[in-house]
């Protein structure tokens, strides 16, 4: 596995650093994806490819359209136009639950643990293909109890790995912010995804927990999964990502390895705002704010 990872990493080194560049082995390929809120283009991605088997970070200033792109890719929102594929399978108009079943599982910026369920029940919920979740077999415990037991064993292993085993029987609502992030991640693993998409895994996490969370994210890659995450924390991006995609105003403005991206003038502009030195586009603050508002609205409407 380590050999594969190194191969994947070294492959990245030779890739063009231009936005929307082709990858030798992309797990997600999308093009011409746009989404507007009102009159505002929240996402306008010409081409995007996510490399397989490594950790890719999606960064950009607030309102750059990262979460919206996440929602679009995972079927939680519908684009105005555009198509994208996961492992070669087209995902346009595929509902969110089917996207997840295909092996592309996401977490949420505001963690969605089910607080009225216990931690272990949260975990069990994540398992796929449960006989007991089918209406007609649900009423008969003998039909599903063995499968449930197997799922519980797997859930307990994951809880142990994420250091949540002590909280097993607690209501998830009693967990701290960081523990919730861990639980959400562990629960996503119950689906056994090929690609795991983390929306701001560090947001609201106690700094003391951050390091262990980073290790957990790395361990996902090390067991052969592809990771895509949205993050603001540049330290984390530098530490763990193998590839970085930068968004601003809905577009992908830069790509590359962490080091090259951090040094890229376009990225600095995107972050500091183009008011000091514009060379790509006019960044209109009001537009940015409006976009952020639109995104917030979209989030709120869904909640």
């Amino acid at each position: 596995m380590a050999v594969e990872l190194n191969a994947a990493r070294s492959a990245l080194a030779s890739i063009s650093k231009e936005p929307g560049s082709k990858k030798p082995d992309a797990i997600v390929v999308g093009s011409n994806i746009t989404r507007t809120f009102g009159g505002l283009k929240a996402v306008d991605v010409e081409h995007i490819e996510i490399p397989r088997g490594v950790i890719t970070a999606l960064i950009g200033p607030n309102g750059a359209g990262k979460t919206t792109l996440f929602n679009l890719l995972t079927g939680f929102d519908e684009p105005d136009e555009g198509d994208w594929a996961f492992n070669g399978k087209k995902l346009s108009n595929v509902p969110a639950y089917k996207v997840a079943r295909l092996g592309m599982v996401r977490t949420f910026q505001l963690t969605k643990v089910l607080s009225k369920l216990t931690v272990i029940e949260n975990m069990r919920l994540g398992a796929t293909g449960q006989r007991g979740e089918r209406f007609f077999s649900a009423a008969f415990k003998s039909l599903w109890s063995s499968q449930e037991d197997a799922n519980t064993v797997r859930a307990d292993e994951l809880l142990g790995r994420f250091k949540l085993d002590a909280k097993r029987e607690d209501f998830a609502g009693s967990l701290s912010g960081g523990q919730r992030k861990l639980l959400e991640m562990a629960r996503a693993l119950m689906v056994d995804p090929e690609l795991i998409m983390l929306d701001e895994p560090m947001a609201g996490v106690n700094p003391a927990l951050k390091q262990s969370l980073l290790e957990h994210v790395k361990s996902l890659r090390d067991e052969g999964r592809t990771v895509l995450f949205v993050e603001h924390d540049m330290d984390m991006v530098r530490d763990i990502s193998d590839w970085v995609i930068v968004m601003a105003q809905g577009q992908i403005v830069a790509e590359g390895t962490p080091q090259s991206v951090m040094a890229d003038q376009r990225v600095i502009d995107a972050y500091l705002g183009a008011h000091h030195d514009t060379d790509i586009t006019e960044i209109d603050l009001q537009d940015l704010e409006a976009e952020a508002d639109a995104e917030l609205d979209a989030e709120k409407d869904k909640a």
């Binding site: 994540g126 649900a138 009423a139």
Partner: peptide
């Protein structure tokens, strides 16, 4: 019988947060 089953668990989860359930397939 239904509510103690995984089926019932899905319902209770939907009551709390549909999107979370959806994200789990």
């Amino acid at each position: 019988a239904l509510m103690r089953s995984p089926w019932g668990r899905v319902l209770k989860s939907i009551r709390e947060d549909e999107d979370a359930v959806r994200s789990l397939g």
